[in-house]
């Protein structure tokens, strides 16, 4: 991931303000999806442009799960922990991936390759447990299938 410069972020935030007006959350959502996280600089810029105290911008950003203050990894793995996935063993999948990647849910691996996340429900309950790998939904997973999925991506990366 390239390191963004302050003037870049500045003009990006200006664009967001043009699109969304004074609505803070959509602006933060756009920054999150553009840069994969909310940097301190970006929040300062938002605070200045919208004339909202920085503590409030941070307060909102820290309240919602969609925002992260550290850059996310290249591959994002989401394990659904909704009720239906839970009764079919979703938690064991999250545990197994945690061990395989050596990170806790919500964290990113040191090499910035993987971010492991959990979600409360993706609404695909009938085909749970669900794992979403880089936007692709995998239904009827179990711990060993999920680990193999990650291993296949690791292998692909190391093969170039």
């Amino acid at each position: 991931m390239s390191k963004e410069t302050i003037p870049e972020v500045n003009s990006f935030v200006e664009e967001c303000v043009k699109t969304h007006g004074r609505f803070l959350i959509p602006i933060l959502q756009d920054i999150q999806s553009e840069y994969n996280y909310l940097s301190e600089d970006s929040m300062r810029i938002v605070s200045e442009k919208l004339d909202i105290p920085l503590r409030d911008v941070y307060g909102v950003a820290s309240f919602y799960q969609a925002f992260s203050f550290t850059p996310k990894g290249k591959h994002i793995i989401i394990v659904c922990l909704g009720t239906a996935c839970h009764v079919r063993g979703g938690a064991a999948i999250a545990d197994a991936l945690s061990r395989e990647l050596n990170i806790k849910p919500g964290e990113t691996s040191q090499d910035s390759m993987f971010t492991l996340e959990t979600v409360n429900c993706l609404g695909c309950c009938a085909i749970g447990p669900i794992v979403v790998m880089d936007g692709e939904y995998h239904g009827q997973m179990n711990a060993s299938k999920a680990v193999k999925l990650v291993q296949s991506i690791k292998k692909r990366c190391s093969d170039g």
């Binding site: 609505f23 959350i25 959509p26 959502q29 909102v60 919602y64 799960q65 969609a66």
Partner: peptide, 22 residues
């Protein structure tokens, strides 16, 4: 408006605050 990942925002007064950017 897209939610930002908070269950409590299904509650109407919380939802309203969320649209308001709080």
């Amino acid at each position: 408006v897209r939610g930002a990942g908070a269950f409590v925002c299904g509650e109407e007064t919380a939802l309203i605050r969320s649209i308001e950017g709080k």
